[in-house]
Amino acid sequence: MNKREQQRKIREEKQQAAKQRAQSRQLAVKVGLFGVTPLLVLFVLFTLLNQGPTYSPIEIADNDHIRGLRERPVSIVVYADFQCPACATENDTMTQLWPRISDKAHLIFRHFPVTTAHQHTWTASLYAEAAGRQGRFWEMHDYLFATQTLWSGLSEEDAEAEFDTYALELNLDIDQLHADMELEDIIAKVRNDQRGGNASGVRGTPTVFINGRQLARPTRDRIIEVVEEEFVEATGD
């Protein structure tokens, strides 16, 4: 075999090897399309379907926490973070003016934990939700905001011990509370509140909606003003 024939043979062998590699790649793609891809699609669909529903500020969910009578025509929805100082201030404001507006409105709290800024906010939300399983959501809600400056700077372990103290003061079953905090529907409630807030344009805390109207500055006077406007709009009084 002369040199030219050897070169031709090598070239043919390379072409054959390239053809085999191309066929192998095509087979791999087919396996991916008909094997891996369906599994990936199923996983994504499963994840989406199991995230649970979200609700806009003009909707009331079955698992919403409502202060006051649901039948009141004005709905105040607050998206808040238990470790956010501005949220604690807003809660103080709402508590002070509540006697004045409670005959016109109901109040809904939704979680919006900013975990990138606040170390204990997620855990605080779980404690509040678990307390709600024992009928004491609002009591734990008020405790967490009232004592925010006490636990915000603690270590994770010490913060949880502090939260346990509040639970005991509320006469909660502490073992049941801890078990409930690990339930998927408790975790999903917090997560879905935040997802709903994101979808509704919440970009920071606190964010207050009154009958779907987002307040840029939820001051005491502004809240009273909008509640009065919405009450007149709803009732004609």
Rank of each mutant, 00 (worst) to 15 (best):
residue 167 A to F: 03
residue 160 E to M: 10
residue 213 R to Y: 12
residue 170 L to D: 01
residue 202 V to C: 15
residue 187 I to G: 03
residue 189 K to V: 02
residue 172 L to P: 03
residue 212 G to R: 15
residue 207 T to K: 08
residue 207 T to M: 13
residue 160 E to H: 02
residue 190 V to H: 00
residue 213 R to N: 06
residue 175 D to R: 13
residue 215 L to T: 04
residue 176 Q to A: 13
residue 163 F to P: 06
residue 199 A to V: 12
residue 202 V to D: 11
residue 188 A to S: 12
residue 177 L to R: 11
residue 211 N to M: 13
residue 160 E to N: 14
residue 177 L to D: 08
residue 208 V to F: 14
residue 202 V to S: 13
residue 185 D to Q: 04
residue 185 D to M: 06
residue 218 P to K: 11
residue 213 R to E: 15
residue 203 R to N: 15
residue 186 I to R: 03
residue 206 P to A: 03
residue 174 I to G: 03
residue 169 E to W: 09
residue 181 M to L: 02
residue 206 P to R: 02
residue 180 D to K: 09
residue 180 D to N: 11
residue 195 R to F: 09
residue 179 A to Y: 05
residue 187 I to D: 01
residue 172 L to H: 08
residue 216 A to T: 15
residue 168 L to D: 01
residue 165 T to L: 12
residue 187 I to C: 01
residue 184 E to G: 03
residue 203 R to C: 11
residue 187 I to F: 00
residue 165 T to M: 07
residue 195 R to M: 02
residue 173 D to M: 15
residue 158 D to H: 07
residue 178 H to E: 09
residue 218 P to E: 09
residue 190 V to I: 14
residue 170 L to C: 00
residue 181 M to G: 01
residue 186 I to W: 05
residue 164 D to V: 08
residue 215 L to G: 06
residue 161 A to N: 10
residue 197 G to D: 03
residue 163 F to G: 05
residue 214 Q to V: 05
residue 213 R to Q: 10
residue 171 N to Y: 08
residue 174 I to D: 08
residue 169 E to L: 13
residue 186 I to A: 06
residue 178 H to G: 06
residue 190 V to W: 08
residue 200 S to V: 09
residue 181 M to Y: 00
residue 208 V to I: 11
residue 169 E to V: 07
residue 198 N to W: 07
residue 201 G to A: 00
residue 214 Q to A: 07
residue 171 N to K: 11
residue 191 R to D: 07
residue 202 V to Q: 07
residue 218 P to I: 10
residue 170 L to G: 00
